[in-house]
Every structure is written in C-alpha cells, then in structure tokens.
Amino acid sequence: MRLQAITAKPVKQYKSYCFTGQTDPNIFRRLILIKDVKKYFAYNFNRRPISTSKEPNMQQVFTKAMARNIFLGGSVFFLAIYLALTYDTWQQIPLRDHADKMTPAVLSGKYLFDTNNCVGCHTLNGEGAYFAPELGNVYKRRGPEFIKAWIQSQPTGVPGRRQMPNFHFDQKELNDLVAYMEWLSHIDTNNWPPNIQG
C-alpha cells in the first residue's frame, strides 16, 4: 500500500470537505460541468473520510477476523458444554421419570396420545396448546374413572363451550391412556405445576 503510494503517479483528486465542516472554496467552479458535479458527489459520498489521526482506530484494534473467531470459538465452546450436560441429563432422566415403569400399556397409551394430537389443544408439563387443561397432572386431579368417563362422553355439544372430539377409544385403549397419564403424574418436574389445577 505504501509502496504504491510512493510509486503511483499522483492522481489529482478533489479534497473532501464534506466531513470537515468547512466550505469547499472551489465549489462554484466545480458546478460548471455536470461531469464535475458527478465526480464531486462520487468522491464525497462514496468514500469514508480518511482518518488523519496517527492513533490506531477501532477498525484496526478489533478486526472482523477477531469477531469471527469469537463467534466460532464461542459456539464450539458452549456447544461442547451443552453436549456434556446433555449426556449427564440423559443418565438422570430415567431416574426422574421412573422409566422402568413404562409398561407396554403406558407406551400404547403414549402412542394414542401422540397420534390423536392431544397437545394440539392441551398442555403436557406446560408444553402444547393453551386451549384445554394441563394433562401432566390430570391423573392426580381427576382420577382414572373420571378421565375415562370424560373422554367417552365427548363432545358435550353445549353451544359455545369448547368442544373435544370423540376419538372412539375402546376399553383397552382408555385403560392404556389412563396408564400413561398415571405414569406422567409421577415425573419429577421440580414441583411444577404450583397447584393441582395445573
């Protein structure tokens, strides 16, 4: 860059006044030709002001490469921590949700729960849609018989009331669903929800 500055033929350029606050003394002369006006604007508006200060500016102290390295290094570092934590969580989850109690009935109930899109209206441990009550603790709130009777009696057909479809479950399927909900109600969720109403 410096070599070029010494060897290159000096090019006559208009001095930039646009950032100095001074008035360009030659402005009227330059307005004579459209070409000059174009040049003037091209010079003044398409360039950054050249710093005259000898101090290194922000541009040189904190470069784009440094920003990129923080991005890449930070991401990899925290991803590694996350993976380690996930490994530990994976060991703990089966203890916290009593995975050993996931009987075939529980798994069958879970499959019915998923393929009938229960979380399309309800929440399960707070996740899902907010149209209908929480199901993570519904077993404790209502008990098995109420749940079965409720599912069978849907839809209520009360005008204006939120309607739940009838899924035409047979008795085994109802029992499986209730088994799943019972299993759900024993998950250690750090004491959530705050009360039985979910």
């Binding site: 996350y82 949700d97 707070g126 998950i187 750090n190």
Partner: peptide, 19 residues
C-alpha cells in the same frame, strides 16, 4: 449462540430434566 446454546435450559425447568 454464546447466550442461546446453554440458554436452551429455560425450556428444561419444569419438564422433567435435572434441577
């Protein structure tokens, strides 16, 4: 990413994950 990767923990408070 620095805040967000571990920040995923805010989804794990009450869904059965460790405390």
């Amino acid at each position: 990413l620095i805040s967000g990767i571990i920040g995923i923990g805010h989804h794990y408070y009450y869904t059965g994950a460790p405390a």
